[in-house]
Design a protein around this nucleic acid. Structure first.
Lengths: 124, 124
DNA sequence: ATTATTGTATTAACTGCTTAATACAATAAT
DNA sequence: ATTATTGTATTAAGCAGTTAATACAATAAT
């Protein structure tokens, strides 16, 4: 896990993203208990209040739920998680296309450039 | 021009990006005079101080230069602009790849998904 | 029963971003 | 010469995000 923050965006939002990724990738499996507010805050180097905020927001999105004194858990709804993954992917791709379009690259240029850079980085 | 701002990132940074885009795409050609601080602030609906900050930063990057009482101009260095475009494109592609990798998509999945979405949106 | 751990809430202070309201200096335009 | 426009600078205020330092309530663990 990286836990590096972009100084230009609220930390609690970045925490939310990272936590979502951990859910999507199965680091935090459906129904599993996640670390406590204090532990997560410690691990990420942020103030407990900030972590609390991120977790509260994720609860509002029904991705987490808390049991008063027992801890916090990932939703058991696996379908919801799949939808989350698909949404994230599609959203980022659309953003990407919009960006490329703005810069003035055409379809083929985008594909070529991407294919090249995909070769460099070692992705399966 | 859109001039809509993401509330989660400093406006002056977003202004810088938009101005860079305007330079790259030739809306502000090399050597041309750009609108005054006050006009730009008016047009974008931000405070003159905020616009001033964005412009000052772009000057520090040598993309703009100002003549004391005459106005502000885009650099004449066309090569610098080309480099800017390439950097922006490459940077965003790398970000994109990193994002996709994080979500857990493989090379071929990325290419396929992108190709599909590129068909939908009407890009040449 | 007692203890430790959990989520939750509160209050204060600090910082960076933004807006507001001006003011000044230089010079192109008239 | 005068005027309008330009970039630039200053000071104050407000807000959101963040940190800090606590405190409380509930309950699992002992």
């Amino acid at each position: 896990m990286s836990w590096e923050f972009d100084a230009n965006r609220p930390i609690y939002l970045q925490l939310m993203e990272q936590l979502k990724i951990n859910i999507i990738t199965g680091i935090y499996p459906p129904g599993s208990k996640i670390p406590s507010v204090r532990d997560l805050a410690m691990e990420t180097g942020v103030n407990p209040n900030t972590m609390q905020r991120a977790l509260t927001e994720l609860e509002r999105e029904n991705l987490l739920y808390s049991q008063r004194t027992n801890g916090r858990f990932v939703t058991e709804d696996e379908n919801m998680i799949k939808v989350l993954q698909k949404n994230l992917a599609e959203q980022q791709i659309k953003e990407f296309i919009a960006n490329m379009k703005t810069i003035g690259l055409k379809r083929q240029e985008i594909i070529d450039l991407l294919a090249n850079l995909l070769q460099e980085g070692e992705i399966k």
